[in-house]
């Protein structure tokens, strides 16, 4: 009887807590935790706080709206320091996509600067690598599906499928958190994408060169999970903030204010 009451109380508390903080439109809340990132033999456990994440990547039509509001990101006006020549090459004018592009395909050919500014203009920000990887390691039913062979096989299959950037958002089922399209559509910018090679924070300084080349790939390479992750870290490592790529889009996240953050 007491036990029953206790669980009822817990239930009420849980409901109460989720009601305290109203979820933003088009986003789902992610409950933070500590986890071991996919990549790297010298990785340590990282902590991710509670946050909200966009359910879908930013689409072409959302970006059209953005660009109309913030003309400095139109391709004729953009400062070349912030976007290379590939920026929005699939647009026929400053405010119009080419006819071949679908409005609800993910926006690509955007630089990191543009993506970052987009999110900030919505009162959001780009996810960190740790946040992105944390959400992306879930499949439909579990928070951490990385040990499942079929989870990894699906990700690897995308790497071999051509022209997926032309697909529309939402075709992939939502994962445990209710987020779609982390895998199988486009690569996504992260806030600290270049920390892989440049910063010594996440790894020993002496290792920063060879982690992505021959040596490290040979270590633990029997692990399918590493293979899928290697590719993401490799693509991030190859980027510069002004690059714009056909297969690279983004989505935003939002911090949950500390008073509502239950993780820590």
């Amino acid at each position: 009887m007491i036990k029953n009451q206790a669980s009822r109380l817990l239930f009420v508390l849980l409901v109460f807590q989720t009601m305290l903080y109203a979820q933003s439109e088009g986003m789902v809340s992610i409950k933070g935790s500590r986890y071991l990132p996919l990549y790297g033999r010298d990785s340590t456990v990282v902590a991710v706080k509670d946050f909200e994440m966009d359910v879908y990547p930013i689409t072409n039509s959302q970006y059209v709206d953005f660009i109309k509001k913030y003309p400095k990101w139109q391709k004729s006006k953009v400062i070349s320091l912030f976007a290379d020549k590939g920026y929005l090459v699939n647009w026929k004018s400053d405010t119009e996509l080419k006819d071949s592009e679908k409005p609800n395909s993910p926006v690509t050919y955007v630089s990191w600067f543009a993506a970052k500014d987009y999110c900030e203009c919505q009162g959001k920000r780009l996810p960190t690598i740790d946040e992105w990887e944390y959400v992306a390691m879930a499949d439909k039913t579990t928070k951490d599906a990385r040990v499942k062979p079929e989870y990894n096989a699906e990700i690897l299959a995308w790497y071999e499928a051509p022209r997926t950037n032309e697909n529309t958002i939402g075709l992939h089922p939502e994962n445990f958190w209710g987020v779609h399209d982390l895998h199988g559509l486009v690569w996504e910018w992260t806030l600290d994408f270049n920390s892989v090679l440049i910063s010594g924070e996440s790894r020993k300084d002496v290792d920063k060169d060879n982690n992505l080349f021959c040596g490290s790939a040979a270590v633990n390479a029997t692990d399918l999970m590493n293979y899928a992750a290697f590719m993401r870290y490799a693509i991030r490592g190859s980027l510069k903030a002004k690059y714009s790529m056909k297969n690279l889009g983004f989505r935003c996240v939002k911090d949950i204010p500390n008073e509502f953050n239950s993780s820590f």
Binding site: L212, F213, C214, A217, A218, A221, N226, F230, M231, A234
Partner: peptide, 8 residues
Amino acid sequence: CATAPVGM
């Protein structure tokens, strides 16, 4: 090519 995963 020697990009990770090199074998692949």
